[in-house]
Simulated scan of single mutants.
Amino acid sequence: MEVNNTIFDPTFETIMTTTKYSLDPSEDKTQENHLDLVILISKATLMGFIVLCALFGNLLVIVSVMRHRKLRVITNYFVVSLALADMLVAIFAMTFNASVEISGRWLFGYFMCDVWNSLDVFFSTVSILHLCCISVDRYYAIVQPLDYPLIMTNMRLGTMLSVVWCSPTVMSFLPIFAGWYTTDSHLNWRKSNPNLCSFRVNKVYAVISSSVSFWVPGMIMIAMYYKIYREADRQERMLYRSKVAAALLNKHLQINGISAGLAGLPPPEPLPEEPPITSSSKMKRERKAARTLGIIMSAFLACWLPFFLWYLITALCDSCESGQIVTAVVFWVGYLNSALNPLIYAYFNREFRAAFRKTLESCCSIFGPATDLRQRKQDLVPSNASSEIHVQRAY
């Protein structure tokens, strides 16, 4: 035993010394603090970026539609209302969630927890109902274009927007403030933990609220856009066939005219120029609008589908628990949709893109000194050129 101690003691001492310096508690704690700080800064930066994009992007949509008469069509009034809802999501839902993610606790008390949960449910439902209305509007504009002005009147527009903004209160404020959305044990837990704000729902409320807020409107939108796609494809084929038939008829008439010896006749008087056919251009515009709004709907479903799947699974499965990271990701992927819509408008819609550019240029012109200097330089060039012209004329 003595020999063994003599042989292995130095090695044991070396191992303990190495362990002491490599796993120093203070150094390990410092590294953890640095890592936590980096994660916190990254989260705050990403959340702040999403909030700012949602605020200013949707504000740009509203201002552009109000400033440019060309964008003041019925569909874009739904778009403006949707942009307002997305701005309110950024103000009332994202900011509260960001404060929880950054501070690690709820800072605003028991009552405001109910307010936040109600606003969160309310605005997400308002957004998807807007997209449902837009899909119905596009359906009538493309499938029944002649009846569209009679169907989509200003009165019907106001009625649809009123229903969209008022009906979600039945699924948000009423059951949440009445306590119908959750279990008695969760209500008691909340009273004993005022610094935490979690939204744990019972099974009945989970099924009904997700169906009303997401699944049923989502299925309606998918059905509408499928019919729109089929009709747009049919109109495209009909337009192509009519162009081919007109070209063949023109060729046939030319051949018959030459064979009948009409070349020696005096040429007929030129017919007045026909106005451009607006039906085909209107169909193209409607198809582009439908494509843009279809992309918006797809982005909405892609952003909110993970949340509602998580929402149903955690509510219906008692043994299914999700970590804090998963909960934060599904919430913020859903919130991301409020910042994506203006980017989709700017990228896929030429009229919105031009309106955005003009609106931003007019906003930048407010900051005057730099633009004034450039304008003065530009004003000097024509004056010099004009003086040279006068000199040349004099000679």
Rank of each mutant, 00 (worst) to 15 (best):
K243A: 09
M238V: 11
L248M: 08
P275F: 09
Q235V: 10
K243F: 01
K284R: 13
A263V: 14
H252T: 12
E231Y: 04
Y225P: 02
Y225D: 02
R291D: 10
Y205D: 02
K288W: 00
D233V: 09
R291G: 12
T292N: 08
A263Q: 15
F214V: 11
G257Q: 11
E269P: 04
G257P: 04
R241Q: 06
K243N: 08
N256E: 13
R287A: 15
S213F: 01
A245L: 12
R291S: 14
P267V: 12
E269N: 10
K284A: 12
K251G: 00
I220C: 15
T292A: 09
P217F: 05
V207W: 02
T278I: 11
S211G: 13
P266Y: 01
M297K: 03
A223W: 12
A290N: 04
M238F: 06
M224A: 10
V207F: 04
I228G: 07
L293C: 14
Y240K: 15
I220A: 15
P272S: 15
G294V: 04
G294K: 01
Q235E: 03
K243R: 09
G294T: 03
P217E: 08
N250W: 00
K282A: 08
L262E: 02
V212G: 09
S298Y: 04
I220D: 04
R241M: 00
S279E: 14
K243G: 05
A206D: 03
K251N: 06
L239Q: 07
G257M: 13
A247R: 06
M221P: 03
M221Q: 11
M219D: 00
H252K: 12
I208Y: 10
K284H: 13
L253S: 03
K251F: 05
F214Q: 04
S279H: 07
I228C: 12
M283H: 08
L271M: 10
V244T: 10
S298G: 15
A223G: 08
A245C: 02
S298Q: 03
S281L: 10
P275G: 07
A260T: 04
I222K: 07
P272C: 11
S280K: 09
A247W: 02
T292P: 01
G264N: 10
L271F: 06
S213G: 14
Y240H: 12
Q254I: 05
E273M: 07
Q235A: 09
